[in-house]
Design a binder for these strands. Sequence first.
DNA 1: ATTGAAAAGAGGTACGTTCCTCAGATATGC
DNA 2: GCATATCTGAGGAACGTACCTCTTTTCAAT
Lengths: 341, 341
Amino acid sequence: MVRPTVHDIAKEAGVSLATVDRVLNARPGVREKTIAKVRKAVERLGYVRDTNAANLARQRQYNFAFVLPEGSSQFANALQDALQEAYSSQVADRTLIRVVRVPLQDPHAIVRTLRSLNVNRLDGLALMVPETPQVRDAVSRLKNSGVAVVTLASDLPNSRRDFFVGVDNVAAGRTAALLMGRFAQSAGEILPVTHSLRSRDSLERRLGFDEVISNEFRCLNVLPTVESYGDPERMTRVIERTVAQRKGLIGIYSMGSGNTALLDAIRNSGQIDKLTVLAHELTPTMRHALRENEVAAVIAQNVGHLTRSALRVLRNLCDNFPIFEAQERVRIEVILRENLP
Amino acid sequence: MVRPTVHDIAKEAGVSLATVDRVLNARPGVREKTIAKVRKAVERLGYVRDTNAANLARQRQYNFAFVLPEGSSQFANALQDALQEAYSSQVADRTLIRVVRVPLQDPHAIVRTLRSLNVNRLDGLALMVPETPQVRDAVSRLKNSGVAVVTLASDLPNSRRDFFVGVDNVAAGRTAALLMGRFAQSAGEILPVTHSLRSRDSLERRLGFDEVISNEFRCLNVLPTVESYGDPERMTRVIERTVAQRKGLIGIYSMGSGNTALLDAIRNSGQIDKLTVLAHELTPTMRHALRENEVAAVIAQNVGHLTRSALRVLRNLCDNFPIFEAQERVRIEVILRENLP
DNA sequence: ATTGAAAAGAGGTACGTTCCTCAGATATGC
DNA sequence: GCATATCTGAGGAACGTACCTCTTTTCAAT
């Protein structure tokens, strides 16, 4: 009982191999009746296409680019590492990946980069940048050139992007709130921090966080969000001032990047072991802070899943295949000191 | 810049294609120096074997069996579903999987099942059963017949099994303890429950749990473990009695299966919203309980990962390939109401 | 120098699919 | 009935690797 091949189908349907091939690959030039015959034979024999052989023969090359934030972003570094790993394993076979890093705070530089991509040599693009009108336009241009576009981790909901790969950030914020509420041993104030609320992910997390806190943990009071705009010194100043002045402060919720500076500031305030600190993304900094009990929990998304999902979606978009949304839903992971991977 | 092939390696190393093939597939008949030459060429060119072509040419068929607990185990059902899914996707191609369910409480039935496996038609076995001397012997027999054996979710550490696929259950217990300690709003007693401490996973979780509670949460007192031995009525009786009598009870930690009966019992006690309940494995029962706020958190392992990992490990064992332990380390997931997948 | 085993080369076929060409068949419109 | 367009058939060449046989080379021990 071996697996049937296209040859078996051809014999069973009483047609030639070429016709079977045309039917299986939905190429034109076959009558409806003949198509039905082949379909029946496929069903009767339980034929399943051998994807190994198909991929080998097809020799399809996917050219993808990943545009990620530049420099100090540990999360982006982790993503790039995951891509490298996908590349050297079989996950990314027949796909060429180019990673471009762009400065987060400079929308024009981002757009320049997006413009510089050679759309003739590009099948798909994965994008992790803040939402600005210029970026939306650039995405529109790429879509017009027939490039598949997915947003990664941070969505651009009003752009023409094809798909968003990443966690539901509202739910991530809700998860953070639930943890904050349950961990808190008394009433008090919570300070939300991020590099910028222009980043869609931060904004959505804040929404989710507020929702749960205001519905279920009335004794907690969420302060206005502190934005650092990627400036460590600004972060340090604001945190030190707030911690010193706000005597009712019991927790800090970091919704974006820049956690290294944030943690340093909290440490300097001398209050780190009195505060419940929650943050996102499992970077080396957060890993260390978890071990030291400085951070209560980290809400993370698995960068390996993220990259694999992005690649899968981009490939399917290129081939006009359907996307199985359930499979692409990235999980919200809760990392504590004891389940650090 | 296309991917290099074996031909390119042969040219680069200055040897013939046959020699490259011998080196890549670890066949004998090549001098150390030549092996080194080929290895260098592989590295210089960044050669990665095209697994599509390799699998196509190899025509290898793997025959695997999965022995899982019978009947009511929702976790085992989830595992079987995950296997089915792996089977119908490309994850399990060229592998034949047979699933056998055995009664957990009957070591002799388990051994009978293991004996009934035709070792000539079997390349590998994944096993999820409690640890008994008879099972250890059966594993030994299978190993003598050249069958690769991995334990799944629940380990058999003193057997001759090749590998354990599953979470570090001590760490899972520690994670539960950390959550229990942080969630608890006052001092009090914690009741640990399981179907049987003979199950290696329950035992280890209890160890990890006690470690963290006794080191860090002195105000919590862990009671002796209640064992239900798979009997729902016994479970109901014991739980109802304990909840009624122990006024200081603030939490319940379920380390094993049988959570449906456990939850029913707690519900009947009328104390469910005063108790912090933690349990393992994300079954439909637990999913519902999380949504209803009856359970604070579930510590889970991803059954998809588990099965994929088991398959990968079994295949590598069959081919005498190395196992990348880091990749096979299954994560301990913390599931709350808000990050339910 | 001769021998012999180990090492390396040369060349081939096979895996199942894709995709191509070219020829022959069938249907359609006039 | 004939031209024309549309289907279908036949055959074959790839894709990259595995694995086979049969030679030839290498190199150390005699």
